[in-house]
Design a binder for these strands. Structure first.
Lengths: 232, 232, 232, 232
DNA sequence: GATGAATGAGAATTCATTCAT
DNA sequence: CATGAATGAATTCTCATTCAT
């Protein structure tokens, strides 16, 4: 009886063995996705590659999609960790362009590492509007960014930070994914990063004010407003 | 015992009846997609809604996906027609921002008209790398844009026009689709268009030079270079 | 939406249950073939009769025809076992006519046991030129026969043993099948066997020399030539 | 509504146009069978190749299988004409071996001309036990043969002429078909004919008596018994 | 008579999920 | 806990046949 959706939450692995089994399943899924394509990622095949039986999968995941959910979660965590790293205190002194470059570069590495996975995650995202999951990720990133902006005083051109974050996120994500899947001629990796960085800089940062402030020796008090965002 | 797969190219409707049947099938598909979601778009359901039998579908489409291909083609045509209209001679005098706004606005209407369809088209695009189809669409749009740019002399900031077109296309497409499907709070329709227009303007157009030229009374000879693209 | 064709090699039953399931499927197929005719042998009906679900069939057979292939293999094995028995060492002293009679008689029993099956196997043989499968069977039988001939010193009239084996095989097979399916008046079972035996004797064996040798007290050294075949 | 079997006998073409249409359909069927294989011989494809519409086929044939029936009839007629020719009065003086060779040779030409057709006819023969059709053909051939034998006085070894005719027919048919479809190495066309002729001669003709009679100057009165058949 | 669009029952095949061992 | 054989609903696609034009 396939595809019956039940919400009985599966056991959270509480033992070491469980943890490694879950990881094996997730890794197997990614491997299958990368090497054999989305069509091959059946529960049976995943179990095979993971070295367990189908039954075992259902010990840890309530249904097939839960595997993908977990994978998405994992990718979110990685992206978040990346952002946290890029926006960490140690980088407060970097220029906005440097910071953005680091972020885009980092994200690109995430995508390059497993394009097949991201392809499927994107498909799943389209298939089932799991807004909440994405939402929470968004919120965390935005919080991170806001914090960083406040700390560095980077002058932001956008009024509506939420909208800007959404737009920026979609642009980066879509462009990377598409370039990875289509690999269009004349769009080498560096070009891609350069274009995206430039796009983000011009879209997000008020470069005029940035230079002024730089010249000014950072005279402005960046933390004086919760978020220094304005258009003009 | 039907088993063998033969990819007989399907009949092009030669009678008036056939034409309308094809349209009925396509429309039914869109309708199902919009009202019942991607999962409901089975050949049986489509036939049902179209008021024909399954067999009839296969008179005109070699396999289920061919319906989606046709639908994509149709949307491409519409988008192309839109662009052609926006970039038509009558609009040569419009400002770049006005032109871009018109384009984005128009595309948005296309997406709003059938978000479910575009969702599925996006999914299909991810599933099967049909680069060629997209490619030909891209090329035609780019040709259109190049022509327009050359005619109006809009100063373009990007060096690599192909890359820029690719990035711009992905940004607009992804953002629209996502905003339609997720309808995130605080991102109303006008906001979306505004953000995208601004993004495109800043990414594509050399606004400094644009203003200079405007002040200059268009002294520059725009057609003097094949494509007036430069960064700075 | 199952669509993609993947020819995953099916599992070899590793548990006792699997073995008996495979047998159940094969037996059910034969039963359906015999009782309901070739047209009734759909996967669904076979599963029904076998007391399993369709899915189970596909655990062990990659596609419908694979069932028939397996059945053919099984019949080949049986025929081979029969021949091995007939041509065994214990029968070296039997006269050629006795040996041929035993072979034909035995084959007839195989056909009589499931004429419907052999009908379908013949049809399949015509439909898809699976030369290799037949070839390997042929070769094994021919090897068997050559060996026996060499051991008994039966004088063979044919020069071209391969051609003769082919012709003989086709004659026996076709005649039996046709007589079973058409059951023509005046061709009772014994008549059929008699006719075939006589046909084979006269076609294959050099009876003149046979008698001479018999009179001679088997003075000839039969194994002196690899195969004592000659015309005249 | 496929495969509904009705027995409304279609119109016999009474006009010239009808005749040629029927021929076109039959020829198209053979052509498709030969060039595209049994699987391609759908009514639609046949109509296409014949240059008519499907509807037209049903004007002359009550159902698909009727086309094959007609084709079988046509082949039967050809075979019969061949036999009639071979066994004609002009050939009374030929030796039995010459006559048989001519017959086998002629049949082979029939098979070689359209092996694909004969393959399908054989399959159909297996599928639907249309004993009567075959029967009437058999009877006519046998009558022909009996007549010839009586006229020439060829001494026949078989007691049961009907059984012998059946066996001989099956042997020739099966061997030819199989050799055509499998084209086994080492069985060239002449070999095949030689083997079959020898097989038939030894199976059917009493060669000892034949030579005796020849030496005797045909002293025996061949017509003295209705059929001069005996086993020794 | 001819046409060919429409029909729809029916066939093969897939794969998420369960559960007895 | 793990296993993997069994399940069966659901899906795609075919093709002989009909009948309105």
């Amino acid at each position: 009886m396939p595809r019956r959706k039940r919400s009985s939450p599966r056991k959270q692995p509480q033992q070491a063995r469980g943890k490694s089994t879950v990881r094996a399943i997730l890794d197997a899924t990614v491997q299958v996705l990368e090497r054999e394509g989305p069509g091959a990622a059946t529960t049976t095949r995943i179990a095979e590659v993971a070295g367990v039986s189908v039954g075992t999968i259902y010990q840890y995941f309530s249904h097939r999609d839960a595997i993908l959910d977990a994978l998405q979660e994992r990718e979110f965590e990685r992206a978040l960790a990346l952002m946290q790293n890029v926006l960490s205190v140690g980088n407060l002194s970097k220029s906005p362009r440097e910071t953005i470059t680091a972020a885009v570069q980092g994200l690109r590495e995430l995508y390059v590492a497993s394009p097949g996975l991201h392809r499927v995650l994107a498909m799943e995202g389209l298939r089932s509007n799991k807004a909440d999951r994405l939402q929470s990720f968004d919120l965390r990133v935005i919080a991170l960014v806001r914090h960083f902006l406040a700390a560095t005083g980077t002058p932001i051109r956008r009024k509506n930070i939420d909208a800007a974050a959404f737009v920026a996120f979609q642009c980066v994500r879509a462009t990377m994914l598409a370039s990875l899947l289509e690999s269009p001629a004349g769009l080498e990796d560096e070009t891609l990063v350069d274009e995206l960085v430039d796009l983000l800089m011009r879209y997000l940062v008020d470069e005029k004010r940035l230079e002024a402030e730089k010249a000014n020796g950072h005279a402005k008090k960046p933390a004086s407003r919760k978020v220094s965002a304005s258009v003009e």
